[in-house]
């Protein structure tokens, strides 16, 4: 009955999406989110976290936004020529059902370009993450740390 209802009604479609996004929000958990404190002359920094997917379906991270930077990108490190390493942009990161993905220095990381203010150790800033097929973003506070 409800299926028939939803096939017809755009209200029901919206409701389904809302329910789905609610489910995604509940199933994704951001742990140990932090931003690297950098000298004030630096215009960019990196962020780190562990992303848990407590749900029974895979979710796909597609990007993030924050007020503290004009642009955010997801990056990873790849091997380049002659023993070098370089950063490469990722447009999506899949977190398997019941799994987690770590963002760490030297591996996958969040890049914050063109910082809009100074990152003082002890401050926190909100980062909001977008997921494929999920309408509302998942937000979490990231603490600024003088990290290694």
């Amino acid at each position: 009955m409800s299926v028939r209802c939803c096939n017809r009604s755009s209200f029901c479609t919206a409701l389904m999406l809302w329910l789905l996004s609610g489910a995604a929000m509940a199933q994704v958990e951001i742990d140990e989110g932090w931003l690297r404190a950098v000298p004030p002359v630096s215009s960019s920094t990196a962020g780190y976290m562990t992303l848990h997917n407590r749900g029974e379906q895979a979710v796909v991270l597609t990007g993030f936004e924050t007020d503290i930077a004009e642009a955010g990108e997801i990056h990873t490190w790849v091997d380049g020529d002659e023993g070098t390493r370089r950063m490469q942009r990722l447009t999506e990161v899949e977190i398997p059902a019941g799994g987690k993905v770590e963002f760490r220095s030297g591996g996958r990381h969040l890049m914050l370009f063109r910082l809009t203010g100074e990152l003082e150790p002890g401050d926190t800033h909100e980062l909001c993450f977008g997921f494929r097929d999920v309408e509302s973003p998942v937000c979490a506070d990231f603490a600024v740390r003088r990290g290694q």
Binding site: G80, D81, E82, G83, R85, R86, M87, Q88
Partner: peptide
């Protein structure tokens, strides 16, 4: 030590591939 300037590579700003 090796460093190679990278083009945009779909990223915001120029960057370097480098040994570390």
């Amino acid at each position: 030590a090796v460093f190679m300037r990278q083009g945009a590579d779909d990223a915001e700003e120029y960057d370097f591939a480098h040994s570390d």
